[in-house]
Amino acid sequence: MSERNNILGRIREALKVSAPLPGLHGDTASAHRSTESPASHAREWLPSVGASSEEQVALFAKNAADLKADFQLFASRDELIIALIKLRDTEKWSRVASHGGGLTNFANKALGLPVTLTDHGYNVQEMEQCDAGITECDALIAQTGGVVVTSRSAGGRALSVLPPHHVVIAQRGQLVSDLPTAFANLQSKYAPDFPSMISFITGPSRTGDIERILVLGAHGPKKLTILCF
């Protein structure tokens, strides 16, 4: 407790002298200060996303492709299931890990493979051996081509990173335009009782640590597939 007081005390002492306003190189004259948060207009500065939902779907597809994620959009759930089964066969999956949920239950049943479900705890070694981790998500973000998962909506913390292939099953209505919307939605959906982990996943795991050359699957999944209907 005492170090806490020491540190806070030093901070308060230091802050008695006020600092020049930022980003103006000591020139305070032209600074504007308003009561709203400085970042509240972020939407106007971040990369543009297009107005219609068609444009946003197209943008998501383009961004996901740039990230080397595989995004597939289907007209119905049945078509999605057909694609998932095709994936199972081409990749020769023998076991998957997943969690219970409106979308995943359907998928897991259709796959007809042994499933490691995380809902009531799981064995890590067993999950490690699975060929794919199949989860739901909280949102798809057009602006980045990424998905949002949480410990509550996507089967815990490990499921979306441990197996070598992460498959997300999503619905078109989960697509949001931009990052500010994604954050606002999370806040209205969960606050104050947030899941203990919220993760913005933007493409499959990657590294550039060897000569800045891109390699996928550094620690997390080598593949990220987003199936959406």
Binding site: D119, S151, G156, S196, I198, F200, S205, G220
Partner: peptide
Amino acid sequence: QPMTCYNTMYSGPRQPGEVDG
């Protein structure tokens, strides 16, 4: 990069009802 691959916000240890952490 447009976004780093994983941006993750942690608000606690494993919470009641959660499966891992």
